[in-house]
Computed example of a mutant assay.
Amino acid sequence: MSPSSQASNEALLAQLQGWRESFDQSFAEPRITDGWGDAWNVLGIRIAGEPFALSLDELAGLLPSQTPAPYPADVPALLGLIGHRGQALPLYDLRALLGRGASSGSRWWVILRAAPVALAVEGFDGQWRLPPEDRLQQAGSHDDVSSWTLRCNGELRPLIALGPLVERLTASLAAKKNVEPVASA
């Protein structure tokens, strides 16, 4: 490895470590109110190459992806099981849950705070603390995308509503469990 490649690698690792520490610290610090009023803390992600955002208040963690443990189930978006803080969590492909087809590969996992679920995402762009003027409310919501579009670092990102997404997933799984048993001859 050339010295310039090694330096570039070290710079990237330092940036990733800084992001990880900043992300972890955002959960440890009390919520701050200042001249912005109630600022929103968001995580920028990519799905099918498009920018989206998730509310940090709805997340318990962000992990680099690894190979999930396979789990035999008839749920198309289920990628397998992962371990997080002593708990086995189902890992779902967020792109598939949003109806945008299966992901060709995820690089990050987000752990949800309200449900024992992890979601695989293709890209992580950063996190931002947004003042009210960077939040644009649209006329209505579309599927799992909330009625909010956020301006993050000059780029517009729809905010994904995780609550309705998890409710729909839970209802879908409950419906599968209530399938009538096959009668034996």
Rank of each mutant, 00 (worst) to 15 (best):
K177R: 13
G37I: 02
H84R: 02
L13V: 02
P51G: 05
L62I: 13
T67H: 09
E29K: 05
G163C: 07
P181Y: 06
T33W: 05
I47T: 09
L169N: 06
A88Y: 02
A53C: 06
G126D: 05
R113A: 14
A88N: 08
R100S: 04
M1Y: 10
E167C: 10
W36D: 15
I82R: 00
E122L: 05
E133C: 05
F23Y: 12
D57K: 08
L13Y: 04
D34Y: 03
R157Q: 07
L173M: 14
G61W: 04
G35S: 14
W19N: 03
H84T: 00
A11I: 10
I82M: 07
V182D: 13
S104Q: 07
S184L: 10
L59S: 05
Q15P: 00
A120D: 09
A60P: 00
A171H: 14
A115D: 13
G123I: 04
A7Y: 08
W40N: 03
S172R: 15
S103Y: 04
V166E: 10
P76L: 06
S147N: 11
T170L: 13
I111G: 04
V145Q: 14
G83F: 00
A53P: 01
H142F: 15
Q6W: 10
H142M: 13
N178E: 14
Q66S: 15
N178D: 15
L91H: 02
D34T: 02
A161D: 12
L89K: 01
E122H: 02
A175D: 13
A183F: 08
L159T: 02
A7G: 03
S2Q: 12
Y71H: 12
L162C: 07
G105E: 09
D24G: 05
C152P: 01
V145M: 15
E58F: 09
I82S: 02
S5Q: 13
D57N: 13
Q17S: 09
V117E: 09
P72I: 12
S147E: 12
Q87S: 10
L63D: 09
P72H: 09
Y71W: 14
D34F: 03
W109R: 05
G154Y: 01
P76F: 08
G101H: 02
A118V: 05
R168Q: 14
G140E: 15
Q87R: 12
L112S: 08
L16R: 10
G123T: 01
T149F: 10
W128S: 03
F27Q: 11
L12M: 10
L59D: 07
I82D: 01
R85P: 00
P116W: 07
R129Q: 11
G105Q: 09
S4P: 00
W148F: 13
G49L: 04
G37L: 06
R113S: 11
E58A: 14
W109S: 00
Q15M: 08
G140D: 15
